[in-house]
């Protein structure tokens, strides 16, 4: 079971990536190519996110109140600036880095998803222009029209 779970995840990422890549090369319809691109993109994002996973017993990368502010209530506004932060640091509970999921891949992929939809928008805009110029989204038809030199 352990071995299957270990490698099964990676195999599926590769299979999803292969499906996306195949669609990007082999499909004729431009929208279908973009669907393939989205699948390719999410497969890679999935791989990145899974790098940060720390197995059973690890929690989400959001700290609890005690972990940030300490177990004792720190008197507010009595100390200023530097002094206060040192005081607060003194009674913070220890955090074992192995119990919290790695936040770095999450940050990288979060922005990648939003940028992904923006670039998908540009791609869709270009395919709309192509459709209204050549009257088709089919790659073969568009290529034939380009070679005939009309449009």
């Amino acid at each position: 079971m352990e071995f299957i779970v270990n490698n099964f995840n990676y195999w599926i990422y590769v299979i999803l990536m292969m499906i996306g890549l195949f669609a990007m090369i082999a499909k004729n319809n431009l929208i279908k190519k973009l669907v393939g691109m989205t699948i390719f993109q999410t497969a890679i994002i999935l791989f990145y996110v899974s790098i940060g996973v720390k197995g059973e017993g690890a929690t989400i990368p959001i700290l609890s109140y005690e972990q940030v502010h300490g177990t004792h209530h720190v008197e507010e506004a009595d100390h200023a600036g530097e002094d206060d932060s040192h005081h607060a640091q003194a009674d913070l509970p220890e955090i074992d880095a192995r119990t919290i999921t790695n936040p770095i891949p999450h940050v990288l992929m979060l922005t990648a998803i939003v940028v992904g939809v923006a670039t998908l928008g540009v791609a869709l805009a270009i395919s709309q222009r192509i459709f209204h110029f050549y009257g088709s989204l089919d790659e073969d038809v568009i290529l034939a029209k380009i070679q005939k030199g009309d449009g």
């Binding site: 720390k54 959001i62 939003v114």
Partner: peptide
Amino acid sequence: WAEMGAVDVAFTEAAVG
């Protein structure tokens, strides 16, 4: 992604994707 503990990524994907 929610299952993997990447809650922020899951939220973004639900809203965006």
